[in-house]
């Protein structure tokens, strides 16, 4: 019998073939720079915000990896959804995410973003964050330790450098109808502006 994170083991074999870099040198260089300057939006949405100060300050000092906190979504590359999200917060999170400029990534922190966590039966928290927003990296724990958060950033760096078309922001553009439908199911149609208008003229 397999041990550990089961479906992960089953998919290990497929993955080895899939990551074959077809990037040019310039693309690789751009991806490298992107991976080493990740600006994190300082929005503590939930419990996880309490482990962010240790991660960002002298003890764990994530600035070694090029990760810096910034104040506004317009400058940010990474949104950390730190734990549970009430619908009221999720609305603001979506607005913040849509204001961020691409390429942008989401890190989901802790059990609550994956399957509801402790608040699985709470009437006021969402259970699956990836229904509403494309999540690029999940970090295990409740609370995740700062080391685990750093592990999430390291894995995200690898993902950014692979520069695959499965990155969350591309998913959000191409599968916007799916995400929007889920958002509307929760909030109703009137409350959120439509994100499509932002990239109406873009060549998808």
């Amino acid at each position: 019998m397999d041990e550990g994170f089961i479906p992960y083991q089953q998919s290990l074999e497929d993955e080895e073939q899939s990551i074959k870099s077809t990037q040019s040198v310039i693309e690789q260089a751009i991806a490298w720079f992107r991976a080493h300057s990740m600006f994190v939006l300082a929005y503590g949405t939930g419990c996880g915000a309490i482990e962010m100060p240790p991660t960002f300050t002298s003890r764990y000092d994530i600035e070694r990896l090029g990760v810096v906190g910034v104040a506004t979504p317009r400058q940010a590359d990474i949104l950390i959804v730190s734990g549970y999200c009430s619908p009221k917060t999720l609305k603001r999170v979506i607005r913040s995410y849509e204001q961020m400029s691409e390429p942008k990534y989401i890190i989901g922190l802790g059990s609550c973003t994956i399957n509801g966590g402790m608040y699985w039966d709470s009437y006021n928290t969402i259970k699956k964050l990836d229904d509403f927003l494309p999540v690029d990296m999940y970090v295990n724990g409740c609370m995740p330790r700062p080391e685990a958060l750093i592990e999430g950033f390291v894995k995200l760096q690898e993902k950014i450098r692979a520069n695959s078309s499965e990155a969350g922001y591309i998913q959000y553009r191409t599968r916007y109808a799916h995400y929007r439908a889920n958002q509307e199911r929760l909030f109703g149609t009137q409350v959120q502006p439509r994100y499509e208008e932002n990239f109406a003229g873009m060549n998808l």
């Binding site: 994956i114 399957n115 509801g116 699985w120 039966d121 709470s122 009437y123 969402i126 259970k127 699956k128 229904d131 929760l186």
Partner: peptide, 9 residues
């Protein structure tokens, strides 16, 4: 309420 409004994985 949760079963009516949210999905589980």
């Amino acid at each position: 309420y949760v079963n009516a409004h949210y999905d589980f994985r």
